[in-house]
Simulated assay, not measured.
Amino acid sequence: MKIGIVILNWNGIDLLKTYLPSVVEHRKEHVIYLADNASTDGSIAWTATHYPEVKIIAMGENRGYAGGYNAALDSVPEEVVCLLNSDVAVTAGWCDFIVRRFEIDPKLAACQPKILDDKKKEFFEYAGAAGGFIDRYAYPYCRGRLFDSIEKDLGQYDDVVDLDWASGACLFLRKSAYIKVGKLDEDYFAHQEEVDLCWRLRHAGFVISYEPQSVVYHLGGGTLNNLNPRKTFYNFRNCLYNIVKNDHSSLWLGVLFIRMLLDGIAALKFLSELKFAHFLAVLHAHFHFYRHLESLLKKRKEIKAFEKVLQVKNTDLSIVYQYFINGIKIYQK
């Protein structure tokens, strides 16, 4: 099976110079696309000159992660695609192991490799690690990473498991499933779009999985790092979006209320640490959420229309309670 490897880029010429060579080296018969979000740094010209085998998809404006990939995938004919960050180094066979999974399992809609830190290669990387899960209050976490606690890769997650979500840093997708559930939600713009997409895929009866034999190395923080209050805004707002759209349990309003209380505590913590920009980002996230509640409820209704099971159930645990109260800093089943 030939797949499309789609690298989204926005003014990332330095990242392309560092990371694109490994993708080209290990591409085999697969097709590489550079989806450019209106860069002004010469990314397109450099890629065309040095790697003419890479197909260019140029967009007229920066459409963010969701919008950029949605537009690009309209021009990609392959049924299985890999949405690959421009700051990811790949290894030999990284595609083969996952492509094989798609070939034998028609229910598989999304899959991720083992994602290690390109700066500290023996450790998992924040954005995905060994596969993602969602707690009762829509906090995403990973095997190998709880909040800012990162585990060393000792082979403890070398098993194939089904996930709640697969990382957008290196996300393999079955295009027909992605289209069926409505593509990436462009209202998110950045952060947690893959969590929402995978949640919708599970509602539709598809499987999300992890393949440990496929290994990549992610630099991370290439678009917005953890010190950027804009990232705080997107993460807090988009978690609320996820609850309204995708928590179809009878207790979802209670879950939303508790999550908003937890956000308030987080905002006060930012304030106590004199992180005023992050405090304001949380407030802004909530006001933005209120303004878009009507459209979110409409999307919730649309998702329920294609739901194949009564309810997609995430874990009942609160990762906040486990981490901050019980002091559990590593993933536990």
Rank of each mutant, 00 (worst) to 15 (best):
G327F: 08
N246F: 11
K183W: 02
I57H: 00
D41S: 04
C239I: 14
S209Q: 03
S176K: 13
A266Q: 09
F172G: 06
D263V: 02
V80T: 14
G155T: 02
H292E: 10
T223E: 06
R230N: 12
I57D: 01
K231N: 08
I303M: 05
A285K: 05
D196G: 12
L171S: 11
Q322H: 07
K183G: 01
D14H: 12
H248E: 06
E302M: 15
I115W: 10
L73K: 07
L240A: 10
A305L: 11
I3K: 00
I319W: 00
S167I: 07
L108R: 05
L184C: 02
N225P: 05
F324N: 03
H278S: 09
P229H: 07
Q192F: 15
D158M: 05
Q112Y: 10
L253F: 07
A267Q: 11
K308D: 07
D117Y: 05
I13Q: 14
A204M: 03
K55C: 01
P113I: 10
G4I: 00
S209D: 15
L20D: 00
F289D: 04
G131K: 06
K313R: 13
G12Q: 08
R237G: 04
I3P: 03
G222F: 06
W10Y: 15
S22T: 12
D117N: 15
S86T: 09
S39I: 08
I44A: 00
K121A: 04
S249M: 06
A48Q: 14
Y321E: 09
A127P: 02
N242Y: 13
P212N: 09
N235A: 14
L171I: 08
G168V: 15
N228I: 00
